[in-house]
């Protein structure tokens, strides 16, 4: 089977300082990969390099596109990469404000991606938006409300709907539950689990929260100081950590 994403030798430096270096992995359709580490580990830098928000200094990010097969997205033309970002890829930001248009209604936010790829029937667009609001557990009646009137958890769920409406195959998530109340987090994670399974999504999730990866991720990469120190099956890395840093990380988590 062709991997959905093949990452080789990704490196990003800030002068002499390493943002991330020597990252290699393959991601297959339907796999969810967690990237964990503490602040400064390079996980967000890596995610941004993979998602095309930052240009890496070295390495390739080869994505299996629908039309042309495997293509290196690092050297892809900007129009093509932007189109990818609106269709087959999705990016869920930590702060919903970064991923939503706050002055556009919920329906407009979800419909935007559809309109960007040519949808021109108002009724259809609105119906799909309402359908997605339902799937992310937001009341239909809020379709014309602005996200500025939503709670944090609702904004995050709206961001997810906005991203998934074009049925992307790969979703990048940067601390998707960061900053949310615990009960709200639980609801969001549950929703994500369900959607990942129903839609057969592949995902790359950056988080510092080990409970999130245990719940959502099939595989795990542990990062420290810009390098991947350990990777493998999520439950194996968390239950039988081999690297010193991973062992430290796992043992530091407080049990309730």
């Amino acid at each position: 089977m062709t991997p959905l994403l093949q990452v080789t030798g990704i490196e990003k430096r800030y002068g002499a300082r390493i943002g991330c270096a020597d990252v290699n992995f393959d991601l297959y359709p339907g796999e969810v990969m967690g990237i964990v580490g503490e602040s400064g580990s390079g996980k967000s830098t890596l995610l941004n390099c993979l998602a095309g928000h930052l240009k890496p200094d070295a390495g390739q990010v080869i994505f299996d596109t629908r039309a042309d097969g495997p293509v290196d997205t690092v050297t892809m033309s900007e129009p093509a990469r932007r189109m990818l970002g609106r269709t087959d890829w999705a990016f869920v930001h930590q702060h919903a404000r970064d991923g939503l248009r706050m002055n556009v209604s919920a329906g407009g936010n979800i419909g935007e991606r559809l309109m960007a790829v040519g949808a021109r029937h108002y009724g259809d667009i609105r119906n799909r938006a309402v359908d997605w609001l339902d799937r992310v557990e937001i009341a239909e009646g809020r379709v014309d409300d602005r996200p500025s009137a939503f709670s944090g958890g609702m904004q995050q769920r709206l961001q997810i709907a906005r991203n998934l409406v074009t049925e992307p195959r790969l979703v990048f998530m940067d601390e998707p539950t960061g900053g949310l109340d615990v009960s709200v987090q639980a609801r969001l994670l549950d929703l994500l689990r369900g959607l990942v399974r129903q839609m057969g999504l592949s995902a790359l999730i950056v988080t510092h929260d080990l409970a999130v990866v245990r719940l959502l991720a099939d595989r795990l990469m542990v990062m420290k100081d810009g390098h991947v120190v350990e990777s493998g099956l999520t439950d194996q890395v968390l239950d039988d950590p081999q690297h010193a840093y991973t062992q430290l990380l796992v043992s530091s988590v407080l049990q309730v």
Binding site: G232, L233, D235, Q236, D239, D240, Q242
Partner: peptide, 9 residues
């Protein structure tokens, strides 16, 4: 048992 399951390496 955990090794058979792949939970331990």
């Amino acid at each position: 048992m955990r090794m058979i399951y792949g939970n331990y390496r």
